[in-house]
Simulated assay, not measured.
Amino acid sequence: MAIWTRQWRVTNILLQFLNPDPLNSKSELEMHLQQPSQKMAFDLWNGVLVHSVIKLSPCRSMEMAPVSLDLKKELCKKKFVGPNIAQAYCWPAIGRGCDLVAVSQKGDDPLLYIPPLLTFLQLPSVYSFQPRRNLPLAIIVCPGQQKAHFVCQMLMDLTRFSRTLYPSLVLVGQDPEETKNIKLIKGCDVVVTTPHSLVRVLQKHCLFFIRLSHLVLDGVDVLFDEAMDEMTTILQCFREATNVPERLSTPQQLIAVGKHWTKQMESLVKENQSDPYVVITAMEEAALYGNVQQVVQLCLDCEKTSLLLTMLDFTSECLQKTLIFTNCAEEVDHVFKVGSYG
């Protein structure tokens, strides 16, 4: 356990050194007006990396969770003991309406986002300025029909005794007539679907996103890997639907959860999210997020000094940061003298 904690300390220091500012943060002027402590938050509670312009306290118990009382009762009936590490950090951000990216070993568990999202959706006054149409406020995109069925059933189970959101499962094939004749349950606020089905719906129903406030990408790493073109179309439609003056007074939230950090997710954050709240509970994925690259150079002990000087002797148009780790204090002194005096 001590070795694992030490590794996380080193990883967090290295990530903070290499990537001190949040992705896609506000303008420099706005950031200047904020307190420096709010620019970035790295937490070490049981090995969690948090990167955001805001600092939120994790909910380490159900009493602290931003979840309605009815939902808490339903979760207790299902033997849910309390939020795990990833949920403890994700739930407050979702409950506050923040854009979220979460990478965790349990990134395929819908409970990572469903309880706080349902609680948010059960506040009708928040959506009072939305058009009164029978269209969803939230869409959950899943990587496959089996997962979509599972998520939709969980939504129905958890909302059985609270304000009914009428979650609907939308799965359509390639038949244009099937897509054209699709009809949602009256009062449907949540739709669960797959990338291919959603794109087919958007091709026939151009106003399908007109009330959309929450887009959830469940298994985002798998979604991009298996349906890249469809995800590009969905995100483009989401941007077009939400980036209009009429939507400034309504919630706009993009939630992406998965098991692995990928390059596509970096583009997702930069192009589609505003001040995202990034939560990563896996050290290897945190290193990928921070763009930490490892290059192994094998040499004899007597050649370390010359090899180090060779690696440091480079010219670059832009300044680059270099962080050197050693095994002991004596080596620190030696490396410092070598680097200072060549």
Rank of each mutant, 00 (worst) to 15 (best):
P136D: 03
C98A: 12
V141F: 05
L135M: 07
P58K: 07
V103Y: 01
L75C: 10
V103E: 04
H32R: 15
Q38L: 15
E28N: 10
V101M: 12
V126R: 08
M40H: 14
S125K: 05
Q87L: 07
P36R: 14
S68L: 07
E28W: 08
D43L: 08
R96N: 15
Y89W: 15
R96Y: 10
P83T: 13
S68T: 08
I140R: 00
T119A: 06
M62R: 09
N84Q: 09
K39S: 10
S68W: 03
Q38G: 04
Q87V: 07
G82T: 05
A138M: 05
I94L: 12
D108P: 01
S128N: 05
L100H: 12
V141I: 13
Q87W: 10
E30S: 14
E74K: 15
K73T: 09
Q35I: 01
L56G: 04
S61T: 15
A41F: 11
M64I: 00
N19V: 01
P110A: 09
C76G: 10
V101F: 07
S37C: 07
G144E: 07
P58R: 08
P131A: 05
E28M: 09
P36M: 13
K79A: 14
Q122T: 02
S37R: 09
K77C: 11
V67C: 06
P22Y: 02
C90I: 09
P131L: 06
L23Y: 09
A93T: 03
P131F: 01
Y113S: 04
C90Q: 09
P83V: 10
C90H: 06
V103G: 01
L33E: 14
D99V: 11
N46A: 11
D99I: 12
L123E: 10
W45Y: 11
P66V: 03
I139F: 03
V103A: 09
P83G: 14
L137Y: 02
L137A: 00
K39Y: 12
C59S: 15
S25W: 02
S125H: 06
I140K: 00
P58E: 07
D108A: 09
L33P: 01
R96S: 15
S27Y: 04
S37K: 10
G47Y: 08
K55F: 01
I139A: 03
W91S: 11
Y89L: 02
V101T: 06
R96E: 15
A138Q: 01
E63K: 15
L135G: 00
Q130E: 12
I54W: 02
P131I: 00
R133D: 03
K79S: 14
K78Y: 08
A41N: 13
G97P: 13
K73P: 02
L49D: 00
I54G: 00
G95Q: 14
V101K: 04
G47V: 03
F120N: 08
M62W: 08
N84V: 01
A41K: 12
E30P: 05
D21Q: 11
P36Q: 12
K73D: 10
S27K: 13
P131R: 05
V50K: 04
